[in-house]
Amino acid sequence: MSRWWKIVPPLVALALWELLAGLGWLGKTPTPVQAVRGIYELIATGLPPGYHLQGHLLASLARVFTGFAVAFVIAVPLGIAMGAWPLASVIVDPLVEAIRPIPPLAWAPLALIWFGLGLASSAFIVFLGAFFPILLNTVSGVKSVDPHLVEAARTLGARKRTILARVLVPGSMPSIITGMRIGMGIAWMTLIAAELIGVKNGYGLGYMIMTARDLARYDLLVAGMVVIGVVGFLIDWLIRLGEKRLLRWR
């Protein structure tokens, strides 16, 4: 039974790609089979040789999780404060709205000046990518908590702090997790883009595919893209898994 047919369209696309690339109709684009072989080469030999895929992956993950963790730790409490107290919103909103439209990558030169080339710099750019989705979703989550629940809590004897901790925070959890998912997606994309510009230690998935481009190794380039996509998907899957366990009540 199940939904086996869901895998048909991707398989057809892959087959088509294999066929067209194999016939040489797509220029230097490698075939899927070559890309998969490329992944093996990235693991076994590395790119440049000695710089293995595991190292690139670990470096990228360290950057993305550092930046994301900082964003989460600041955005969630701030968002809750902004959702719960109109005054906090009035103060912070203009600042947020002024900074939010600036692409995180535009901060790269400044980040280099402030933090130098290294983990802190890329984590800062990731932070900027993850921060706003988490913040805005947290704010709207707090604001969308049913006012009846707050009133019910008050009639049961709850004071402000209790209402915050026992009603507003759990009530906005679904929204916060949505913000985390969006924030992580943007953080991952931002990081890879940031690594295209340059890294200090020679490790990073973005840096790796730039190396592939410089060497005209298009099979390795596509292999790197596939890895980036799969890892991004797995991270999102992990968050969704956590969401399911945490929000069983939904």
Binding site: L149, A152, A153, R154, T155, R166, G171, W249
Partner: peptide
């Protein structure tokens, strides 16, 4: 408002993230 004057709302206003037992014990937990 105060716990000596209990209110029952038309909309029930149960905390959806708390189990039945945890809803009932809310006023005791806090």
């Amino acid at each position: 408002p105060g716990p000596e004057r209990g209110v029952v709302f038309q909309e029930y206003a149960l905390f959806p993230w708390r189990t039945v037992l945890k809803n009932v014990s809310f006023g005791l937990d806090i």
